[in-house]
């Protein structure tokens, strides 16, 4: 049975597109047939994060307006046999698509794919309404900051009002060192405030910047963020994976230093 997942946050710049790219790629690595849809019309970005920007011919608006068939607009990611991208339009605006059209599109894609991942634009206007229209479940991305959490809370309220069946939380850009000295809210603090199910936490990792530079999602690689995103993919598939302990990955020197600090 296929599932339509919307990745949303309310606030911009917290990692929706990065999370969409990594979750989509991760699920494809786990042998699921995945299509990623960039629903941010006018501010297209998922294509560059995925490294597929040079292969766009048709886009989401072309499909919705009937200028091409869905198959023609889907870009096949050559690195993975099961991964496709439907890019957004760069020269149009959010009002070019309606929630009804998005629902129809996702329903058609259900026949072909196991997972349909929608990268939602920031904000709570038309673009958000379009993105959530056909979704079965939502992944809320937030960072441990007051502004991001406040917006996430608002988004959760709106999703519940729209009777979204399943809502899970990704806490992104966690800095274990700052949490430890009490200068950043912990995963537990964020979960406590937002009161929804946590599906994973991703540490602030330089490797993310590098992977975005290269246009290659790092999910599954031997980096903290790569492992964290892979864990999230396993949990989406319903597997039980324990939360990573970021603090233990400090290396030998930090461990020795910690021994002395405790006294």
């Amino acid at each position: 049975m296929s599932e339509v997942i919307v990745v949303t946050s309310g606030k911009g710049g917290v990692g929706k597109t990065t999370s969409s790219a990594n979750v989509g790629t991760g699920l494809a690595k786990l042998d699921q047939k995945v299509v990623l849809i960039d629903t941010d019309i006018g501010l297209r970005n998922l294509d560059v994060v995925m490294g597929l920007e040079n292969r766009i011919v048709y886009n989401l608006v072309d499909v919705v307006e009937g200028n091409c068939r869905i198959k023609q607009a889907l870009i096949k990611d050559k690195r993975y046999p099961n991964l496709y991208l439907l890019p957004s339009a760069q020269t149009r605006d959010k009002t070019s698509v309606t929630p009804e059209q998005m629902k129809k599109l996702t329903d058609e894609l259900r026949e072909e794919f196991d997972y349909i991942i929608l990268d939602c634009p920031a904000g709570i206007e038309q673009g958000f309404k379009n993105a959530i229209a056909g979704a079965d479940r939502a992944l809320i991305v937030t960072t441990p900051e007051v502004s991001a959490i406040r917006d996430a809370d608002r988004i959760i309220g709106l999703l519940e009002a729209n009777s979204m069946k399943k809502i899970d939380l990704i806490v992104n850009r966690l800095r274990p060192d700052m949490v430890k000295r009490g200068d950043m809210m912990s995963i537990d603090d964020v979960v406590d405030i937002l009161a929804i199910n946590l599906i994973g936490a991703v540490p602030d990792d330089e490797a993310i910047v590098i992977s975005t530079n290269q246009g290659e999602p790092l999910v599954g690689s031997d980096t903290l963020a790569g492992k964290a995103y892979m864990n999230i993919c396993h949990r989406i598939l319903g597997e039980e994976v324990p939360l990573m302990d970021f603090s233990t990955e400090n290396g030998l020197f930090a461990k020795i230093a910690n021994l002395f600090k405790k006294n």
Binding site: V146, V179, M184
Partner: peptide
């Protein structure tokens, strides 16, 4: 510490938001 300050402020603002 500042994370407690953030948490307390958030809790208050969310109650009135909600």
């Amino acid at each position: 510490n500042s994370s407690d300050v953030a948490k307390d402020r958030l809790k208050l603002v969310l109650v009135s938001d909600r």
